[in-house]
């Protein structure tokens, strides 16, 4: 099913009409990132509809997985709508050299989910939206796109190879929105065990900057 969709999109973007897109195609070739660039540059509704058809169902699954206090399943469609409208409005600011469309849309969805929960549970004045503390990847990140793509593939691969109990905790935290403390209660494990499982998983996926490179990445 998914595979079919990929092929369909491939055909659609085999002959990009604009030079800019061609250039980007050499840099980041995944179809969703290209579609997102097209939406940003030309407000192309067809490209947007394709993004919707791919990401809408994933966003809904993401919303339905939430086990946050106060979250109700009926909010799934609301989240899909809110995220996709944000995607349309913010697409012009998307830079494929910094993140893939999937990562970019994930962060929009995560922030929307936080804000929806806060709006529901809080009638007080909230001065900050979660976007206010989201940092755009650096202008000067020395990590080249190629190695970034390599990194994404590595994360993809190593995530699928994690021991079951490590993957389970990561999914609890990322999808259900549980803190480590809540995950430890639910799994009946000491907090230290939960934390060390997460840490082991991060080490396997090489998420953490190795100590020998930490100085290089230290405060500016």
């Amino acid at each position: 099913m998914l595979k079919k969709k990929f092929e369909f999109v491939d055909r659609q973007i085999e002959n990009p009409s604009r030079g800019a897109i061609l250039n980007l195609a050499e840099k980041r070739s995944d179809q969703w990132s290209l579609l997102l660039v097209t939406v940003g540059e030309t407000r192309d509704r067809q490209a947007f509809a394709k993004l919707f058809k791919h990401f809408g169902p994933l966003l809904k699954s993401f919303a339905q997985a939430s086990r946050h206090e106060g979250w109700i399943p009926g909010l799934g469609d609301d989240l899909v709508q809110e995220v996709m409208i944000k995607v349309w409005n913010k697409a012009a600011g998307y830079n494929p050299e910094k993140a893939s469309a999937t990562t970019w849309i994930y962060t929009v969805a995560r922030n929307c989910r936080i804000d929806m929960l806060r709006r529901k549970s809080n009638t007080q004045h909230l001065p900050l939206e979660s976007e206010d503390y989201w940092h755009e990847p650096d202008e000067d990140t020395p990590v080249s796109l190629l190695s970034q793509k390599h990194r994404e593939e590595k994360i993809q691969f190593s995530l699928s190879k994690l021991p079951r109990e490590q993957g389970e905790i990561l999914r609890k935290v990322y999808l259900e929105g549980k803190s480590h403390a809540e995950a430890s209660q639910e799994l009946g494990l000491p907090l230290g065990t939960v934390k060390s499982r997460v840490r082991l998983a991060l080490q396997k996926m090489q998420i953490l900057v190795a100590p020998e490179f930490q100085d290089e990445f230290s405060h500016e």
């Binding site: 809408g56 169902p57 994933l58 899909v80 962060t107 999808l175």
Partner: peptide, 16 residues
């Protein structure tokens, strides 16, 4: 964030 997006990306898509 790439880990989070990858976890979302590998979910079973819901019907909408």
């Amino acid at each position: 964030d790439q880990v989070g997006s990858e976890i979302m990306d590998t979910m079973e898509p819901a019907a909408i």
